[in-house]
């Protein structure tokens, strides 16, 4: 029994990470109808942004010891900043020039960005995993026979916090309304005086900020950062976004947790070596039977 509870906790932890990354896919898809293939690399670059910041502060042990929360916050903000800057660059250089190009063009460009970033970091790190500094307090709490580490609790709480913040941002702020308007109908939004270019950049920025933060947290959780770390979480988060219905914010959250839990349980049911296959199988099944996802709007073919 406690094994299942443990798996559930694993799944929720992982699911939170997927959900936060999935939000980035969903937001960008909403406004541009384009899958940002390089989103997983933003996650990875965020982790490295946090890593190198912590690396620079490594000798300031006094700060780490006396103010661990400040160090953690610093790392997360550094990760967010890194991803945001990269997202702005990639939107400007690789996607915006292709906004009216055939569908295949921005997709290939995004794949190019993804390959570029991943291999650049691979060279930069000499293809080695970087051990992430142990900034988060070790330790855990016992609930019955089940052991939950602090970092997991932190991860779950933070992912929920981020999702709430994003939800408020999208629903309550003026920028959020603009994003929704552009997602609904770009031309009409432009006629209403919304700066479409700026809104699209802001969409990338919000998605990237979430991905960067998730990257740092994930690296703290797994205690390392590597150039290839964005690939699988990226694909899985995309699967999560599709599961929930791409373009839908609550859908991405649902999809993330659903996928996290399925994957976690599958390690017990099918075997750990095939856990990465679960996401793909789910993706194919959803795309065949319910391509608009669980929360998405069914899009009729246009005449």
């Amino acid at each position: 029994m406690e094994q299942w509870i443990q798996l559930t906790i694993d799944g929720i932890t992982l699911g939170g990470v997927y959900a936060v990354i999935a939000l980035g896919y969903t937001l960008v898809y909403g406004v541009l109808r384009m899958i940002n293939f390089a989103h997983g690399e933003l996650f990875m670059m965020g982790a490295f942004g946090g890593f190198y910041t912590l690396d620079a502060f490594e000798n300031h042990t006094t700060m780490n010891d006396s103010l661990p929360s400040l160090t953690i916050a610093l790392a997360i903000f550094a990760g967010m900043g890194t991803s945001v800057i990269l997202a702005i660059l990639m939107e400007r250089l690789a996607y915006r020039p292709l906004r009216h190009a055939p569908r295949l063009a921005p997709l290939i460009s995004a794949i190019g960005v993804s390959i570029l970033l991943r291999n650049l970091m691979l060279r930069w790190t000499n293809a080695r995993r970087q051990v992430f500094p142990q900034v988060f307090p070790r330790g855990s709490i016992e609930i019955g026979d089940v052991n939950v580490t602090y970092i997991r609790i932190f991860l779950v709480a933070l992912s929920i916090l981020f999702m709430l913040l994003l939800y408020i941002f999208i629903q309550r702020t003026k920028t959020g309304t603009a994003i929704r308007a552009v997602a609904e109908d770009r031309d009409t939004a432009a006629l209403m005086g919304i700066d479409v270019d700026r809104t699209i950049v802001l969409t990338f920025v919000s998605g990237a900020a979430l991905a960067g933060a998730a990257g740092v947290c994930y690296a703290m959780y797994t205690t390392n950062a590597a150039a290839g770390m964005g690939f699988l979480p990226g694909i899985k988060a995309f699967t999560a976004a599709v599961l929930g219905g791409i373009g839908s914010v609550p859908g991405a959250m649902f999809g993330g947790y659903f996928l996290g839990l399925s994957e976690s349980y599958s390690t017990k049911l099918i075997g750990a070596q095939y856990k990465d296959v679960v996401a793909f199988v789910l993706l194919v099944l959803v795309l065949i039977f319910r391509p608009w996802g669980f929360f998405g709007k069914r899009e009729d073919r246009r005449a």
Binding site: L98, S109, G112, L116
Partner: peptide, 14 residues
């Protein structure tokens, strides 16, 4: 090589 291909894919598309 892969760094260059990535950049080349973007450059060719743009």
């Amino acid at each position: 090589r892969l760094v260059i291909f990535g950049a080349a894919l973007v450059a060719v598309m743009v």
